[in-house]
Amino acid sequence: MIVLTVGLLGSHCEGAISCKNENGDNVDWFILYKKPDGFNYFYIDSTDQNLKENNKDKPVNHQAGVLAHTLGPYFESSPDFGFIAYNDQTPSCNALTEYGHSKGVVMMDKENVVWLLHSTPKFPERDKSNNFYPDSGKRNAQIFMCVTLPSDKSAQIGQHLKDINAHIFKEHNPEKFKDSSTAPQPLPYDNDLWSAGGQKFKHFVKQISKESKDGDLYVTIADTLESNLYIQTWRSDPKDLNKRPLSKTNKGYKLDTIIKVGTAAGTWEHGSDHSKWCVSDSKDWMCVGDSNREPSQFERPGGALCINSKDVADAFKGITKDIAKDSKRTGSPQNPSIPVKKKGG
């Protein structure tokens, strides 16, 4: 695994690379949440911190949409630019369990680094703007978080990717990414990360352990942020008491499983949601992770990127409509005293 540092790169012909919105304009960061059984989504970014539905003429796989605009340099593969794409479920292989369950694209030019984390297997499937999104990604809900960072943050991202054992399946100009690896950091760890626009983020790398109190990414996040969490991950059966992970952390913070999401793009239950995210119930943090709350993943490396934004945290608490029945809180996160109707009753 290589660790990213600043290469001697020329200027991109259209200026420094950046996350983009659906009009192709630069944004400091965005979060995109695709609905299941379709390609529409809802979205929030640095210029408008209100969750909103996408333009129906530009679904997530559109060649002039948010992802295609952001991945423009990836499709161009110009000589003054470098990228790596990592995914444990590549276009040619369904599962590589010796790697972290992580997925993303890192792009870099002289000025900026764009880090796009996501939960979609086989993404990007191809390197053309009109066929980059895999058809297999249509079935389940998926999440994407993009952040634009100064180029001097590339080594920090590279160390993160090394420590989560990300599987790189496609790269361009790999010589631009110099290896500056240092001694491995003790796990788990977290570090602050500031975007090019000054937004505070924090990235986490979890411990590897068969014990959920150590190997569960969300235990690490909750104990570090000192907050209860609402958590959405892919799980086989949240109602099976024998298969549930811890409901409390080592420090006594509560971990609630989200089982229903309600958005402008529709309402769905967790069984059709392949995204991995969590939100603090009392602090201004929302995170996109790469690990599920399953025992098999406690023994795999993994991590998360979290944004410190009240608007984002409130928006994601607002779409959480139901949590697992074993939780002592039976209402919605916004109104805990108001019971939420459970499935089947």
Rank of each mutant, 00 (worst) to 15 (best):
G104Q: 05
S129N: 05
F81N: 07
I31G: 01
N228P: 01
S92W: 15
K254I: 06
N173M: 05
F298Y: 11
S212E: 14
H203A: 03
P121D: 03
F316I: 08
G318I: 00
V60K: 02
S247R: 15
G345S: 11
H160D: 04
R329M: 09
S247N: 12
A166P: 06
S11K: 14
D240E: 08
L116I: 06
L161W: 04
I323V: 12
S280R: 00
P245L: 02
N228S: 12
K260L: 05
K325A: 11
V147R: 02
T263M: 11
K20F: 08
D127W: 11
S275L: 04
V261R: 09
D273C: 00
N335R: 13
E14R: 11
Y230R: 02
V3P: 07
L8I: 14
L241H: 13
G303L: 01
I221R: 00
N112A: 08
K52R: 09
P124I: 03
E171A: 13
Q334Y: 10
P339D: 01
S46D: 06
P150Q: 00
G271M: 11
L51W: 03
K153F: 04
D223F: 02
L305Q: 00
Y218F: 08
P174Y: 08
W234Y: 09
N50T: 15
R329W: 03
V3K: 02
K153E: 10
T182N: 11
L255R: 03
D48A: 14
K110T: 15
S296F: 11
S11D: 15
